[in-house]
Simulated scan of single mutants.
Amino acid sequence: MRYGQSHLEHVYHSQLKNRCQKNNESLQEFEADIAWLVRLAYSSTVGNLATLLNGMERLAVQAFLDGLRDTETR
């Protein structure tokens, strides 16, 4: 609460960057968590909605691919 929402966005951004698929975690569960972290990490981004959503989707896809455990699936 002391540092406000911008501090939390940095925390969520770090969690997103370091998020990897857990053992026994399905692709659907992993994708849902990535999507949730992207929304939290970039919640205060202002601008054209279509551009913002496109950028967030690209970030989510890249984080998902980076965090996959199975290199063949990646």
Rank of each mutant, 00 (worst) to 15 (best):
residue 72 E to I: 13
residue 50 A to G: 10
residue 32 A to C: 02
residue 24 N to E: 11
residue 37 L to D: 08
residue 59 L to C: 06
residue 4 G to Q: 09
residue 38 V to E: 10
residue 59 L to T: 06
residue 53 L to W: 05
residue 26 S to W: 00
residue 27 L to N: 03
residue 12 Y to R: 05
residue 20 C to Y: 03
residue 62 Q to D: 09
residue 73 T to Q: 07
residue 33 D to P: 03
residue 56 M to F: 02
residue 10 H to Y: 13
residue 19 R to A: 11
residue 6 S to Y: 12
residue 15 Q to D: 06
residue 9 E to V: 03
residue 66 D to T: 00
residue 53 L to F: 07
residue 11 V to G: 12
residue 6 S to V: 06
residue 39 R to I: 01
residue 59 L to F: 06
residue 23 N to K: 14
residue 56 M to Y: 04
residue 39 R to E: 13
residue 43 S to K: 15
residue 70 D to Y: 05
residue 6 S to M: 08
residue 27 L to C: 11
residue 15 Q to M: 14
residue 33 D to R: 07
residue 19 R to E: 12
residue 10 H to P: 02
residue 65 L to Y: 10
residue 60 A to G: 05
residue 35 A to N: 15
residue 47 G to Q: 01
residue 4 G to N: 01
residue 62 Q to A: 14
residue 64 F to L: 00
residue 58 R to P: 08
residue 12 Y to D: 09
residue 70 D to H: 05
residue 12 Y to Q: 07
residue 32 A to M: 01
residue 26 S to T: 00
residue 17 K to H: 12
residue 33 D to A: 13
residue 28 Q to S: 10
residue 43 S to F: 14
residue 3 Y to V: 04
residue 47 G to E: 03
residue 14 S to C: 08
residue 51 T to K: 15
residue 62 Q to L: 13
residue 13 H to T: 05
residue 38 V to Q: 05
residue 61 V to L: 14
residue 64 F to A: 02
residue 30 F to G: 02
residue 60 A to H: 00
residue 55 G to N: 12
residue 57 E to L: 06
residue 67 G to Q: 00
residue 38 V to W: 01
residue 57 E to I: 09
residue 67 G to L: 06
residue 64 F to D: 04
residue 33 D to V: 00
residue 28 Q to K: 07
residue 24 N to R: 10
residue 8 L to S: 12
residue 40 L to K: 15
residue 49 L to I: 15
residue 33 D to C: 08
residue 42 Y to C: 05
residue 39 R to T: 11
residue 71 T to Y: 12
residue 53 L to Y: 12
residue 4 G to V: 03
residue 69 R to M: 09
residue 42 Y to A: 03
residue 73 T to W: 11
residue 63 A to W: 01
residue 74 R to M: 07
residue 1 M to H: 11
residue 48 N to G: 04
residue 42 Y to M: 00
residue 1 M to R: 08
residue 10 H to V: 11
residue 21 Q to T: 01
residue 64 F to E: 02
residue 74 R to P: 07
residue 66 D to K: 12
residue 65 L to D: 14
residue 69 R to Q: 08
residue 11 V to E: 10
residue 59 L to N: 12
residue 4 G to E: 07
residue 38 V to I: 09
residue 62 Q to K: 13
residue 68 L to G: 06
residue 37 L to E: 01
residue 49 L to C: 12
residue 69 R to I: 10
residue 21 Q to D: 06
residue 48 N to K: 01
residue 17 K to W: 11
residue 42 Y to F: 08
residue 34 I to L: 02
